[in-house]
């Protein structure tokens, strides 16, 4: 077996997700991302099952593994019991661990996800909070959301929510002990180190690309750039 395949097989999702692919392509037929992108999840599974180091390294450095939306529509359809999306989750984890994610435009976006969703979890205990969904970054949310955003406390308290206060209720402030426990979980299970590695690899790549580092300018660049080669 190749070393990258062995590393992938350390992930329990590979054990669950890969049996033997017969290349029927039903995963690609049902895939929402394949309808939009120049993308074929069947080929990913086929490449991984070759166990070929060179081919898997190329995959880990490519845009290809970042198109999947993890909707899992492929899972119930596969006649051989494969789950391409699980294999892709494993590939993405390994790509980030090895620093290969910075080689592709879509992979580099992981830093933006860490600095938005990841930071929200660290700061609030939620993936999202109203004040974190800035209408400027989310024009598709429309004028009603802009109104909610600008009048957040008045709107949420209208529904009896415990808005940013401790105690039960929606959009509440999570108490200090619970936040400390969450932070300990992130530390003990390696999430902190995972985040640090995303920052470190992105910093190096940003400098290589001519930025002053992985600063706000670099964030905006990776968050908004589409080089037009994906469809």
């Amino acid at each position: 077996m190749g070393k990258y395949f062995d590393m992938l097989m350390e992930d329990v999702r590979m054990k669950e997700g890969l049996t033997a692919c017969m290349n029927c392509g039903i995963c690609t037929g049902v895939c929402p991302s394949a309808e939009f992108y120049n993308y074929d999840p069947r080929q990913i599974v086929d490449t991984v099952q070759t166990q070929d180091d060179r081919a898997i390294e190329e995959l880990l450095k490519s845009d290809t593994i970042w198109y999947c939306g993890e909707c899992m529509s492929c899972r119930p359809r596969c006649p051989r019991g494969n789950t391409p999306a699980y294999i892709i989750q494993s590939l993405r984890s390994l790509s980030q661990r090895l620093g290969f994610f910075v080689y592709s435009e879509k992979g580099r976006q992981q830093l933006a996800l860490k600095r938005t969703i990841g930071q929200n979890i660290l700061n609030t205990g939620y993936c999202l909070m109203p004040k974190l969904i800035d209408p400027e970054l989310h024009p598709e949310q429309g004028p009603v959301w802009k109104w909610v955003y600008e009048h957040d406390r008045d709107v949420f308290e209208r529904f009896g929510d415990n808005y940013r206060q401790e105690g039960p209720g929606a959009v509440r402030k999570i108490d200090d002990q619970s936040m400390a426990e969450l932070h300990n979980i992130l530390k003990v299970t390696g999430c902190d180190d995972f985040f640090d590695n995303l920052e470190k690899c992105s910093e190096q790549k940003a400098i290589e690309m001519g930025f002053n580092g992985a600063d706000e300018e670099y964030f905006r660049y990776i968050y908004t750039t589409d080089n037009g080669s994906h469809q």
Binding site: Q96, I117, G118, Y126, C127, G169, T189, C191
Partner: peptide, 28 residues
């Protein structure tokens, strides 16, 4: 219950929250 947090699922399916982390959040 006031004490539970996000399951961190959006982070997990954006591939920035590791499997061991989210399983432990679920356990909590």
């Amino acid at each position: 219950d006031a004490r539970h947090t996000s399951c961190t699922g959006i982070g997990y399916h954006s591939d920035i929250v590791p499997l061991d982390t989210i399983m432990t959040v679920v356990a909590r």
